[in-house]
């Protein structure tokens, strides 16, 4: 059987199966008969699959023939955990697998993506950078992420005339997505909250390739009484947009980690950015009054 005969035979068999004829080399593939629409999921060939990340995990219940579907759904509404996924043989279902990979990819992207170039200037922040030259170095050299590069140090020095009481630092940290989603709303609420309490804040800064410790370096330069670092948290599979605030009284390079007060889980499904900001403003007032942050503040509270 030569090649031509073979092609003809395949075409015939496919024709009998009711499938469109195979693609003719070099021409656009336009099936003469697209076939009946698939009713099961409503897709036709060539359609995009739906966005698996748009599904609400708290509502997604894939177990077939459940004894008490509503009962499980009620419990599931309380957690974003991947429960009630059902199975395909010994494996996950396709949807579960795709969603897991999509969330994992989003988490990785949040780490590797950059906060946009004009983020600092657009939001009236002094744009600074640590000594890391790129993301790769940032991830492998935490020590460099705590030190400002020379140019940034100079820029900051010239921008600050008098030491502010409170210095706000926005840093990309491990999630650029978290910062773009939350930092500015949170900072606006912190500023208004401090203003209402008569506490002045200097001009805020944005630090690229920022670790929490970079706030200490900013403290060294500005001589601020307190630094509040808004930084992207290491993303997880639930959200890639979670931000933390690290507040340090009398920040300076080498300050103990136990001197930091942290407010974590700032994101739309956790504490909303504006509400967290208002809370942080009050916390800052307390820390300034008691002149201590971190573990010391807890001990102070227990007295």
């Amino acid at each position: 059987m030569n090649k031509q005969e073979l092609t003809a035979m395949v075409a015939e068999i496919l024709g009998q199966m009711g499938l469109p004829e195979p693609m003719v080399k070099g021409s656009d593939y336009k099936p003469a008969n697209p076939g009946p629409e698939q009713k099961e999921n409503g897709f036709r060939e060539g359609d995009f699959v739906p966005d698996v990340t748009a599904l609400d995990l708290r509502k997604l219940y894939l177990q077939e023939n459940a004894a008490d579907k509503e009962g499980f759904a009620r419990l599931k509404a309380k957690t974003p955990a991947r429960l009630g996924s059902g199975r395909a043989g010994p494996r996950y279902k396709t949807l579960t697998m795709l969603r897991f990979r999509a969330d994992h990819a989003a988490a990785q992207d949040a780490v590797f993506s950059q906060v946009s170039e004009d983020f600092g200037s657009k939001n009236d922040l002094i744009p600074l950078k640590t000594r890391c030259k790129d993301k790769e170095e940032y991830l492998t050299r935490p020590d460099l992420g705590r030190i400002l590069d020379e140019e940034s140090e100079k820029k900051l020095k010239s921008a600050v005339s008098a030491a502010p009481r409170v210095q706000i630092v926005v840093g990309d940290g491990l999630s650029s997505a978290a910062i773009q989603a939350n930092a500015m709303d949170c900072m606006a609420a912190i500023r208004d909250g401090l203003k209402a309490r008569g506490i002045d804040t200097g001009k805020a800064v944005f630090v690229r390739y920022c670790r929490v410790g970079a706030g200490d370096a900013v403290g060294d330069v500005t001589g601020c009484e307190l630094v509040c670092v808004l930084v992207g948290e290491r993303p997880g599979l639930v959200t890639d947009k979670s931000m933390s605030a690290y507040i340090t009284y009398k920040p300076h390079t080498g300050v103990s980690e136990s001197a930091r007060t942290v407010v974590s889980n700032i994101h739309a499904q956790g504490t909303p950015a504006v509400e967290a900001g208002a809370h942080i403003a009050e916390l800052i007032e307390t820390i300034l009054r008691k002149r201590v942050s971190g573990v010391g503040l807890h001990l102070e509270g227990a007295k």
Binding site: A189, A196, V274, E275, G277, A278, H279, A281, E282
Partner: peptide, 14 residues
């Protein structure tokens, strides 16, 4: 109903 009272309160205080 939604979690935003502290932010709203301090914004009103101003």
């Amino acid at each position: 109903e939604q979690d935003m009272a502290k932010a709203l309160g301090q914004a009103m205080a101003l």
